[in-house]
Design a protein around this nucleic acid. Sequence first.
DNA 1: AGTTGCCTATATACCCCATT
DNA 2: AATGGGGTATATAGGCAACT
Length: 296
Amino acid sequence: MSKSARQKQRIAALEEKLQALESGHEAKQRDTNYYVSKGRAVRRIVSLFDSIEDLIIENDRRCENDDSDEGATLDQECLQIRFIALTHALPWLDCKASDMEYNEYSQMLKKLRQGADATRGDDTSKLKNFVAGWVNRELKPTPLVDPDDKNCRSFINDACGKLLCPTELDWNDSNIRTRIRDRADGYVVTEMSWPAFLYENYTANLDNLEEGIFKSKLLVHAFKAIFMSPSSAKEVSCDGNGANIIKNNRCARNSKVKTHLQFALSSVTSWRSIDGDFDYIPFWQTIVDFFERPPG
DNA sequence: AGTTGCCTATATACCCCATT
DNA sequence: AATGGGGTATATAGGCAACT
């Protein structure tokens, strides 16, 4: 059943190729691949989840309305901010789009999206492995976290559970632990609370939730793995330079790094993306807000 | 030679829709 | 409501070529 579907996909892909060859437009083929590679960055730099179309549509809407920002909803504000990030990431996009046929245009967007999603997939799978190593090295759980298997993670595993545990709950209390695991009333973990892995030393100051936030070693590992290189992530080690890296980056590439970081954050959690109560999109959005909105 | 980014292939899950 | 087709998204593994 799904086999025939797959074969059809394959056929479609081959026909596309054939057409490109027959029409002698190898250049066109190159073009589409070019767009895939250009799209790779957007999930990292622009937005983890929004479709490129949505961003463009929001901008169009504004242009039609004579740029008047009044009455824009919060969501629309966010879209616009990301549209601007998009124009920085792909400066050629606007003028290229204007002299394209609709078909060509939507082809291009499709390829951009493919590149974007592919990269996100690469990153999550990378992290799936690395996170296991980092957690094992730092927390030395028994049993160790299996790099190839996510089913044994989440709250089942003591180390993972500790990291995922909401800051306002105490993972060391075995009663609380079992309640979280049973998803008892009031102990269901959702995207509404900050997990411990965001904080320096994995503990938050409940009187000041901003203290040490986004400074955990695990996060810096993840950040480096994604935005620098996998091997450089190993070198974070224990010299406390993690915070500095974030700080420097924040100064150096202000607007982008925000989104960079959020991606790293969400990705760390993605080891348990199968689980039900936790919705990643609002979680990510909250983190974006944290950086983009003035304090308060 | 090891690292890295990019690409391809495959299985699976999910969503939409028409038909039964 | 259930089924099945068609399409798309996601997870994951593995390969390849460029670079250091």
